[in-house]
Amino acid sequence: MPMVIYASIRHDGKDWIVKHDAFEVRGKTLDEIDEKVKQVVREKGLMRGGKAQVYMAYDNNAIPQWIRQYSSHYFDRVVEL
């Protein structure tokens, strides 16, 4: 069983930002974000049996309030390493 790491993701108009209790990374693209997340997860030893799944749930609070009444879910993405 890989380690499952739950984190939040949002975009602030310039960067994607992934936050977790143990780390926070920023990047212009999702590719950049993924690379940085993988690196920090490895560095901090957050894996189990050499595997981890990072579950990034889009932070609903980062969706403008007037739009939330139409749809409050942007996306959740999973990155495996």
């Binding site: 975009h11 602030d12 108009g13 932070d59 609070n61 980062a62 403008p64 309030q65 007037w66 739009i67």
Partner: peptide, 26 residues
């Protein structure tokens, strides 16, 4: 629970969100 920073508080304030149409790179 980790301490919530001022920036995070601002983001969760009703009505703010972290984006508006005015802040776009069209």
């Amino acid at each position: 629970m980790a301490e919530v920073t001022t920036e995070e508080k601002k983001e969760t304030q009703p009505g703010t969100g972290s984006l508006s149409v005015d802040a776009l790179e069209a």
